[in-house]
Design a protein around this nucleic acid. Sequence first.
DNA 1: AGATATCCTTGTTTTTTGCAAGTACGGGAG
DNA 2: CTCCCGTACTTGCAAAAAACAAGGATATCT
Lengths: 132, 132
Amino acid sequence: MSYERNGCPIRFGLGILGDKWSLLIIRDLMFKGRRYYGEFLSAGEGISTNILADRLARLEDADIIHKTPDPAHGKKIVYCLTEKGLDLMPIMFSIMDWAEKYDDQTEVPREFIKELRNQPKSLRRKILASLK
Amino acid sequence: MSYERNGCPIRFGLGILGDKWSLLIIRDLMFKGRRYYGEFLSAGEGISTNILADRLARLEDADIIHKTPDPAHGKKIVYCLTEKGLDLMPIMFSIMDWAEKYDDQTEVPREFIKELRNQPKSLRRKILASLK
DNA sequence: AGATATCCTTGTTTTTTGCAAGTACGGGAG
DNA sequence: CTCCCGTACTTGCAAAAAACAAGGATATCT
């Protein structure tokens, strides 16, 4: 599905947010410190290699992520979130907030949720710092 | 895809948030005042009848929406968001906030975005009131 | 020089989605 | 009372997407 612009903000976000594999990739980049193709592949979610390659390409096309060759490994590629991608953080925070309320088996640390709710800007700065 | 619980909040939300048709149905219920099967069908998004029926069933199974027969029309069914579904509002607000920044063709009124950013609780109350 | 790692691509199968037609039933019109 | 329309779907089939398994190109390591 291509990005169809008809002015609706929810529909605008669908190409990324309405796709489970894209959400998981963004999660891994944003919160799990995963940056390489192999790390996404072995994240335990069961994604197929052709789908992973496809989603990475789409996210790059949408300027959500950016890829660069790893200087230390000529064959490796490092993926990172762009500013547009990092600006998805409030959405991810909201999802975590909602899930903490409705998932009785959630494993997010209480301190994380507390900070997420009370000081989201501070939490955001910490996460941004850890991604540098 | 069934709801697989492994403690991750993003993954927990995937069955709903990682599905474009579910997001659009929630949007229509939450912000567009659409409550009937026929209204979702003719929202202009191109959904097929079997997919709409399937997604409504899934959202009901997940306790996101609730359906009741329309007292005024014996054959009509009214769909509405449950408390769990209404609690998705901050997520939808975040998506709109993000889209307003990155969609140069967004049609969300400026006043809506302003209130969304400055007084989300007030906006939430207004929307809840309009859904009663 | 050969083996391994890395990031994919390719071909095929399976699953999901979209399309078109049809169904069951309640209510309204005549 | 009967017929027709509206409503919410279901069904069968075709098309598209996803999943599976194997393989390829290339850089790095031993």
